[in-house]
Design a protein around this nucleic acid. Sequence first.
DNA 1: AGTTGAACCTGAACGC
DNA 2: TGCGTTCAGGTTCAAC
Length: 271
Amino acid sequence: MPELPEVETALRGVSPYLDGFTIEKITVRQPKLRWAVSPELVELKNVKILALGRRAKYLIIHTEKGYIVGHLGMSGSVRIVPHDSPIDKHDHLDIVINNGKLLRYNDPRRFGAWLWTEDLDEFHLFLKLGPEPLSDEFNAEYLFKKSRKKTTALKTFLMDNAVVVGVGNIYANESLFLCGLHPLKSAGNLTRKQCGLIVDTIKTVLTKAIEQGGTTLKDFLQPDGRPGYFAQELLVYSNKDKPCPKCGTKIESLVIGQRNSYFCPHCQKKK
DNA sequence: AGTTGAACCTGAACGC
DNA sequence: TGCGTTCAGGTTCAAC
């Protein structure tokens, strides 16, 4: 489900109900997620939340004892509900707050994760992550150097978390369309100029998507229950056989690196 | 070292 | 209506 804008939206939605409050306890109903839920979470009692943050698509709850690291996987979501709210199917975990509310995590496919670490810098899942797409570290020179000698398809390259984090299937497709670059173009053949265009476009697309509360394809909801509004602006993603917004040519689709890809064969050239 | 694809899981949508 | 098949917003890890 969620790419960076959806995770950022979720974080902003839940923060006012968590930040500065105390976690009374964490209830786990289904520990079998992408990885087993860290046992430390169940042991937590009455710990103060110091701050909330995000790294890549991970939510981070900084407590006085350590860090809760959450991931929404493909189908996960979080919402804020009262303590006595009835439990729905796939409501796997609750973080109970001392303000009458709790953060409830629902995830049908269970590709998400809830883990514990006392040292974020040593956290194993963070070690190989590339820069944040909205940071200055993600710039034309970086992308140019990183892409040298890579034979991978450009789209696969951009979705690689070791290159840049947070760019999932929707925004990779949308960004490449806006750049006029073919998703199968070999990453190693990019020019400096093209790298600059890609960097600028990704930043613009992600920023705009965050402003609109993310993309709702079918089941993503902001924590307040509203959908994301970016879906109304999707130019190519899931629009196979529809006319290209720029030239009217039928949008094509192609599986690249196990993920469906959408592009305009006229506007997006391999060269 | 770089690249590819199997695996994790449920449910909605589609074809017959 | 029912049943089998395909596909889905992510990511790791094993095997070429």
